[in-house]
Design a protein around this nucleic acid. Structure first.
Lengths: 310, 310
DNA sequence: TCTCGTGTTGCGAACGTTTGCAACCTCACT
DNA sequence: AGTGAGGTTGCAAACGTTCGCAACACGAGA
């Protein structure tokens, strides 16, 4: 539109005065901040750094920035977090704290805030989500254990209030049925939280009640580590006496003692994909489009925490 | 200033219209964004999540928000990252990527941008910093090994371009001297990067050249894990044949095989303290105050990767 | 009663962009 | 030469706050 020479001179003096376009002023005028809010339980939980990294890299490609905030699993903080982010003018939200029934999320869709769920999802189908294939993952774990010869397999599931809890229980039951195995009451336990300590606690009570269990599918890697502790305390060896399988393939899982057999999916990709879904929603033309629900492929990574039953 | 009744009514209708003060407009007007930029190599590096968490919690107390961005160790990206954050109008910067000589940081102080360094520092004394007590930490590691009876102790230091590299070499030399031990050339090696792979590489070449080494002090926990790999590949056992000590006490270090003996300091506190220093700098009255350099106390955590020499 | 000081109220400018629109210019066609 | 289309230029409004300042009211002292 202007001559190359003028452009050159403009750019030059801009650099000279070191002009920097003021993103705040731009945001105020355009009503878009090129910013998305990310709500996770805790960045220090090993599940989340790679997710966040995937988010941030994908956002950077389109010159967006993330604002990350934490709930520490305290659901009463959710609304407050959302409020904070909206004050800051985020264009959309990436939420990894969904509960099966989640008024805070419902409120967001009512307020027409673009939201995408990560890792977990609510029953409200109107909110797009990117999650692992929980059922498939658990199924591959059960199949593997069954092939090894295990018959008494227990599941330590995430809480029933999480989609991960429900989906994994469902996946477990169908896989067991297909393998021709019983699931006696008491062999499926729901945790109150997805923590190492809770994993240990449940594992201990489970083994007390059912000493003949030879394999445990844990709700995630942290809970699997809790099982390690519990087994050690009970004088049982893993994998010789009891096999353990985790979920997530957290960083350094291959270096634990024993190296953890676990269901892997790509955390980085989960974050990046969620950004893609959100950005699509952010386009005015597609803001009302049918919500997508992406399920990420899982793969069982066999390491040292699984063996044939004794 | 107004009656309690009026206040009540104002607040009520504010809630009714669900008024939300627009942080962007406020920032534009006040020229303060209540935001600080955080520059780290990579959130997926296990050192950083707890630091960032400490930062964010401390910031939240004063209603600030962080904008986190990554360099992946590519120093040429630094300026670009700074530029991005300044465009976004951050009030100050927290930088964990300092090099011993660092033009990008010098540029920031020239531009009077409030900066605090975390974990590492440049030689430019004008920039406040919060770092671990590198010398003290290494000293406690060496003293412990010497007490166990080790005589041939090697150091795999971080790069010389990092303050951590220099300080740890210095600490190593004085500790060895005090213990009455020699430091032959070749027993102090500087890494090119602070990674697991680089740790393995150096460890292998070190053990080739000096097979009589019985203990290794690694630049950090990741490099220590690299030593594990290298030792295993060489058919040497840890700690029976060679002891290994790390630095940082990264998450789950106690669960590695063997559990890692390492120098611990409080990452969370490091982040929180840095925020404190930065906030003080942000006050106009103290922006020119003498820069402080906080050194965080370290403590050796003895686990299973150390034993008397064979 | 007038002046001055103190305190309150309310208006409007400013922050740095983007964007719509009016004004203007050029050129071609009638 | 007049008209209109197409294109360029430049100005001003607007985004949602904060904050300085003018205007005003009130009371006290001369």
């Amino acid at each position: 539109m202007v001559s190359a020479d003028t452009l050159q001179r403009v750019l030059e003096s801009a650099r000279e005065l070191n002009y920097r376009t003021n993103a705040i002023a731009r945001s105020l005028r355009t009503q878009r901040s090129q910013t998305v809010g990310v709500v996770i339980p805790d960045i220090a939980n090993p599940l989340f750094p790679r997710i966040v990294r995937g988010i941030d890299d994908a956002l950077e490609d389109v010159r967006y920035t993330s604002l990350v905030t934490y709930t520490d699993g305290r659901d009463d903080r959710l609304l407050e977090r959302f409020e904070l982010l909206r004050q800051r003018g985020v264009d959309g939200l990436l939420v990894a704290t969904a509960r099966h029934s989640d008024p805070a999320l419902d409120m967001l869709v009512a307020a027409r805030v673009p939201v995408v769920q990560i890792n977990r999802r609510t029953q409200n189908q109107a909110i797009p989500s990117v999650t692992p294939d929980d059922r498939g993952g658990i199924r591959s774990a059960v199949e593997f254990l069954a092939e090894l010869g295990h018959r008494k397999i227990a599941l330590l599931a995430p809480p029933q209030t999480h989609s991960t809890g429900r989906a994994r229980i469902a996946g477990f039951r169908t896989a067991m049925r297909r393998a021709g195995l019983d699931v006696p009451a008491g062999l499926v336990q729901s945790a109150r939280a997805v923590t190492l300590e809770e994993g240990a606690r449940i594992c201990t009570s489970l083994l007390d009640a059912h000493p003949d269990v030879t394999a445990i599918v844990a709700g995630n890697d942290l809970m699997a580590l809790g099982c390690y502790d519990s087994l050690r305390a009970a004088g049982r060896r893993c994998p010789d006496d009891v096999s353990v399988i985790g979920f997530n393939d957290m960083a350094f899982a291959e270096r634990f003692d024993p190296p953890l057999t676990t269901v892997r999916f790509d955390h980085y990709e989960m974050g990046a994909t969620a950004v893609g879904v959100l950005l699509r929603r952010l386009r005015p033309s597609e803001s009302e489009a049918e919500p997508v629900h992406v399920e990420l492929e899982t793969r069982l990574v066999v390491r040292g925490s699984t063996a044939p039953p004794p």
